[in-house]
Write a protein that binds this DNA or RNA. Structure first.
Length: 501
RNA sequence: GCCAAGGUGGCAGAGUCCGGCCGAACGCAGCGGCCUGCAGAGCCGCCCACCGCCGGUUCAAAUCCGGCCCUUGGCUCCA
């Protein structure tokens, strides 16, 4: 059973074979740091993170590069706003810091490098020069454009026909271009003040700042939008990537242009596998920075906790659209809660004196083995995280069943130590692939503030013994209000803290 | 207009590449039962889908082919 992935370039599900059988070169088209990251970004990050984890699980060394676009008129448009910073690079810096801290809160594996455009201008200039030398690009009024008609395969990713493509870029560029579809590799001068003005938020006054510029063989200017990814990925990962991941909304023109400029420059395939993350759907429109209908990552983490949020973000395949709504997110939380409760119960049972190595529950053990197989198969099938989740939930069901049967005292020989251990390990091991952490302090006895809760539960237990249920229920409600979920069982009350993290 | 993806139960969402095991997974919601002082959690059982529409291929189609309708994304910044 080998990993298969859907390649946008071919439209097919293909067996995954990296160039080097031991290494995977993974590039993720990162974000433009002009707004706080939102859940849509988080969805892509988490899916890329799961890919990264799964590839490592399969034994590959993953060289994962993820860029920050820190040169952009939208960033310039934020200068002076609130306390974001007083220059393009300061604003970018603020948002990069914020982004990295959001990434941490989502339990993402670190990429090997997070390159920035501003630090790769020499590489960009080199690349543009190469394209000019090879006659794939031409200079016009100090700007340089890529000549799409020179690149035979133009449109191969997005299936575009040159004649159908409308003009790209800002209006004033258009007269400088030979073909409407030609795109800027290098833009003369500073940021276009109109473009900056267009992106400024209401209430921000003053003259638009200048933004950064760099020297080049064509004079002072700024890099075009698409060239950065080519330059950065080639700098850090070489001419041919194994996997290039990005949002579906970037297929055209961004990724198409990346292919054109990269392959024209190197005569080598730019990326062997193009994977595209689908977008969030909210009430008939996508979630995006430009539409302003987004939930920021930090709000979401605060509201739902990392585990529930990751359960939500992996509740669909990376390449299918996902509905964002209060219902869908709380359903995900239910799933996570179910997993966690089963995990906690299994851990408690394994640690209890009633667990015995001589007890063997075959149905528990086969259910766990089946779930393991199902998880592996799901992940190998184009990173099908939803199926993977359901495999984990099958483990939860198997645990609960076994616990129930054992408690039913029909055969009072106790818990299947080996089977439960296996179940616990499975949840930990595969949960980790999805970035779900069961090691929280939410379990019974040893929990944070646990002693106090235990004390209250002791008091409550005494009230119950006296038949004073009203008071007992009050205590339970009060604990509930504090985020402590109480569960009465045959062995006394247990609890879990509802706040994740 | 052009390109791309998709339309599966009350919701959500797998399955469609390799047709039969799919009268359709997992979860949520709903119903009944067990357990419980009650509640929650859990367990057992059940209800709800002829898989957008029409036609075709086949012994057999949610899965293949053709047409149509609709939705979403892209063609302007965007994960």
């Amino acid at each position: 059973m080998t990993l298969h992935v859907t390649n946008t370039l071919t439209g097919d599900l293909e067996p995954f074979e990296p160039q080097d059988p031991e290494n995977v070169l993974l590039y993720y088209c990162g974000l433009t740091v002009s707004d706080p990251p939102h859940l849509g970004h988080a969805r892509s990050w988490v899916h890329v993170d799961v890919m990264h984890r799964w590839l490592e699980h399969l034994g590959y060394d993953v060289r994962h590069v993820e860029n920050f676009t820190d040169v952009n008129e939208k960033i310039v448009a934020r200068v002076g706003e609130d306390d974001l910073g007083d220059s393009e690079s300061a604003v970018a810096r603020t948002y990069i810091d914020r982004t990295i801290s959001d990434m941490r809160s989502l339990n993402l594996l670190r990429a090997e490098v997070y390159p920035r455009v501003s630090e790769h201008v020499p590489e960009i200039v080199d690349l543009v020069e190469t394209l000019v030398e090879k006659d794939y690009a031409y200079e016009s009024n100090g700007s340089v454009y890529f000549d799409v008609t020179r690149f035979e395969d133009y449109g191969k990713l997005s299936n575009q026909d040159l004649d159908e493509i409308e003009s790209q870029g800002e209006p004033d560029e258009r007269s400088e271009k030979r073909h409407p579809a030609d795109f800027a590799l290098w833009k003369a001068g500073g940021v276009d003040p109109d473009a900056v003005e267009e992106h400024r938020h209401e209430g921000v006054s003053g003259d638009p700042p200048a933004g950064l510029t760099w020297d080049s063989p064509w004079g002072e200017g700024r890099p075009g939008w698409h060239i950065e990814c080519s330059a950065m990925s080639m700098t850090h990962l070489g001419e041919t990537l194994d996997i290039h991941v990005g949002g579906r909304d970037l297929v055209f023109p961004h990724h198409e242009n990346e292919i054109a400029q990269s392959e024209a420059a190197t005569d080598a395939q730019f990326a062997n596998y193009w994977l595209h993350c689908e977008l969030f759907q909210m009430d008939d429109e996508k979630m995006s920075s430009s539409l302003g209908n987004f939930v920021t990552v930090s709000e979401a983490v605060d509201a739902w906790g990392t585990n529930a949020l990751r359960t939500f973000l992996t509740a669909g395949s990376y390449n299918s659209k996902q509905l964002y709504s209060d219902e869908t997110i709380s359903e995900a939380r239910e799933r996570w809660d179910r997993l966690e409760r089963a995990y906690d119960a299994a851990v408690d049972a394994v640690d209890s004196p009633d667990a015995a190595t001589k007890v063997a529950d075959t149905s528990l053990r086969t259910a766990v083995d089946d779930a393991r197989d199902a998880f592996e198969a799901a992940m190998n099938d184009d990173f099908n995280t939803r199926e993977a989740q359901s495999a984990l939930l099958e483990v939860a069901t198997a645990i609960n069943r076994h616990l129930d049967a054992a408690a039913a005292d029909e055969h009072d020989d106790g818990y299947d130590y080996v089977g439960l251990r296996r179940a616990v390990e499975t949840l930990e091991e595969y949960g980790e692939i999805l970035g779900l952490a069961f090691d929280g302090q939410t379990t019974g006895s040893a929990a944070l503030a646990g002693d106090v809760v235990e004390l209250v539960l002791d008091v409550r237990e005494q009230e119950r013994e006296r038949g004073n249920y009203e008071r007992a229920d009050e205590l339970r409600d009060e604990l509930e209000a504090l985020g402590v979920e109480v569960q009465d069982t045959d062995d006394g009350a247990s609890y879990r803290l509802e706040t994740d993290e």
